[in-house]
């Protein structure tokens, strides 16, 4: 397969996933912020947005482009601002551009779903969204789900699909990790040092928001009936092999795809990216949430993020732009 085609497939997967993650993040932040504003002092709202800007790593860009952190500007920035590379419109547009370059690798339904929703997005503007943010954000999530469903149903089980999945799951693992990291940080009330395990913050609403933002709330309860405990949340979102948005699940899927792509024997990692992914997957498999909290969640998630980046770099070097 041409490296460029693989690269485009990889990025279609990434961008669609990134779009969905942005919509989830906005949705949960907006609504949990509304709730907490009612309960606590004014100013919390802006603090909620700050954490959102931190998760996305775009606080600096935002302050350059907008004067204050108000709902309208925040929505504009995260939804429609093409100068913001992670805005929903920008990431979907990039997914579509990549798809256009590899149309012969995709089913025509996949292209149509990307294109149709792109044209749909262009019909919206921030004022329409503000009136009903949830409707809009659900629609974005649905578009991503539709695309991924069509992918599952129509795309040939081949290398192109493996590349799409590599992009999707690597992005998903990263997004979940990052979300947890920043929310955790947020819950510690911006303290730099990680809290020891016994001292985990008990802001119930915060943890519920974390779970909801990755559609994990109900699933979490099925696995952990004891209620919301930080250790269990970390276990569920990071280590659970069966929850589709967990870091462990994502990395496992990435490993499987890379293994098929390399086409090597069952028992040996065929390539550097495969080795890196397998190594991370093994760590996540045999680790316990308590251990993670013992040594500190933030440094742990940080290292996961770095290792995901390394996997991405290794994929690029080995397959895509050599």
């Amino acid at each position: 397969m041409l490296s460029r085609h693989a690269d485009s497939c990889f990025w279609i997967g990434r961008y669609v996933e990134r779009t969905e993650a942005a919509a989830r993040m906005m949705d949960v932040h907006y609504h949990s912020a509304l709730e907490t504003t009612r309960q606590s002092a004014a100013g919390t709202l802006s603090r909620r947005w700050s954490s959102l800007l931190a998760i996305s790593g775009s606080a600096q860009l935002y302050t350059q482009r907008y004067e204050s952190e108000n709902d309208r500007d925040i929505f504009q920035f995260f939804l429609f601002d093409l100068e913001h590379p992670s805005s929903i419109l920008a990431t979907w547009q990039k997914a579509r551009e990549n798809a256009r370059a590899v149309r012969e690798q995709l089913s025509s339904e996949m292209w149509e779903s990307l294109n149709t929703f792109y044209l749909n997005l262009k019909e919206w503007d921030v004022d329409r969204v503000i009136a009903m943010p949830h409707v809009f954000l659900c629609m974005v999530k649905d578009a991503s789900h539709l695309f991924q469903g069509i992918l599952n149903r129509t795309m040939l089980m081949g290398e192109a699909r493996d590349w799409l999945d590599t992009g999707r799951f690597l992005e998903r693992a990263e997004q979940t990790g990052r979300l947890l990291d920043v929310k955790f940080h947020d819950l510690l009330d911006n303290q730099e040092a990680p809290a020891p395990a016994g001292n985990m913050p008990l802001d119930l609403h915060g943890w519920i928001a974390v779970l909801k933002s990755v559609s994990a709330f109900e699933m979490y309860h099925k696995t952990h009936q004891e209620g919301i405990l930080p250790e269990h949340v970390v276990d569920f979102l990071v280590l659970n092999p069966r929850f589709p948005a967990s870091v462990r699940h994502g990395i496992g899927r990435v490993e499987g795809c890379l293994h098929r792509i390399a086409g090597h024997a069952e028992d040996s990692p065929g390539s550097e990216p495969e080795r890196l992914a397998g190594h991370l997957r093994a760590d996540l498999t045999y680790m316990k949430a308590a251990e993670i909290l013992q040594t500190g969640l933030h440094p742990f998630l940080d290292s996961v993020q770095i290792r995901c980046n390394q996997i991405g770099d290794a994929i690029r070097a080995a397959y895509l732009s050599y």
Partner: peptide, 8 residues
Amino acid sequence: YMKTTHGP
């Protein structure tokens, strides 16, 4: 050469 995922 052409760049493919299985080498040049």
